[in-house]
Computed example of a mutant assay.
Amino acid sequence: MSSTKNMGRFGQRPCHPQLSEHLLKWASPSPRHTRNGTRSCPSRLRARTRAVIGRPARRATAGDITLRRARIAVRANVSNDEAFGRKRVMMRRPTLFLTVGLPCTGKTTAARRIEIEQKALRLTKDEWVKALYGHENPPSAQDVIEGRLIQIGLRALELGNNVVIDYGLWSRDERSALRQAAADLGATVEMRYFELTPAEQRRRLDQRQAEAPHTTWPMSDEELAEWAANIDIPTPGELDGSEPIDDPPAGFATWDEWRRHRWPPSVS
């Protein structure tokens, strides 16, 4: 004879060994019978039982297993992609490209190529001056536009983007200030110097003036000769980055201070 020690309220064993006695008082007093005559837990008791101990797990099908594996794979791929993205951001340092040279020596052509190949933000001063002033080319406005473009470029570097600054930079101090600004942001600098013979430079200027006058201004031979005498040609150490950055000029504590003086925020 079987023992009645563990029998339930209705003469059958409880639906679950962990079922508490306080649940039994909520059961219906009248038991239900299945088709084969055995007793079963009333519906109210089954509902409360499921609420406490959970619905019995059904047998997993092949479709369930496939779906579970797919979800795990997706989570793993997302985690790997996020980790790779963080690692790539941490490892990749943005680059500031500087084009140095006299007019019509190939700076903008190279800057456009860098823009595409290096996915860089290109900042060409002449395009902005032409758009704002047309045939005029006021020196005071040039300084302000250059300064504004530098601010945009430094912000882009700070956000992790490559930048190419495309305007002359004839002065060594200008290049040193930008090298220091890039270094302060953790960016690298690549400097490109462009040079042509005076005859070839004159030929290109005349060709551009004839074919695309809206992109340039008239320039005399005297102006070209004066500019050629004033440019500080980059040294090999500047070009390959091996030469240390100079100290700021006398009267300026930092290159940042000199930069604000050289490129004022507004036209005076």
Rank of each mutant, 00 (worst) to 15 (best):
D81I: 09
L96T: 04
A60F: 09
R86Q: 08
S79K: 11
T99G: 10
A62M: 00
V100L: 13
E127L: 15
L98D: 09
V129Q: 14
V74Y: 09
Y133L: 06
K125S: 13
A111I: 05
V100Y: 08
K130L: 08
M91F: 00
T61L: 09
E115L: 03
C104S: 15
E115K: 03
R75H: 15
V89I: 06
I116V: 08
T124I: 04
V78K: 15
R86A: 12
P138G: 11
S79A: 14
I116N: 05
G85L: 01
R71C: 06
L132K: 04
L102R: 07
A62V: 01
V129N: 11
N77C: 06
A76C: 08
R86D: 08
N137W: 12
L123Y: 15
L67Y: 01
A111N: 03
R113S: 11
A131V: 13
I116R: 14
R86K: 12
R86C: 07
R93N: 08
P139N: 12
L123G: 11
Y133D: 05
D64L: 01
I72Y: 02
E136D: 13
Y133P: 02
H135C: 06
G85P: 00
K87T: 00
I72W: 08
R93I: 03
E115C: 09
S140K: 14
R92G: 00
R59C: 08
Q118K: 15
A83Y: 00
A70P: 00
V100S: 13
T66V: 03
R92I: 06
S140V: 14
A111E: 02
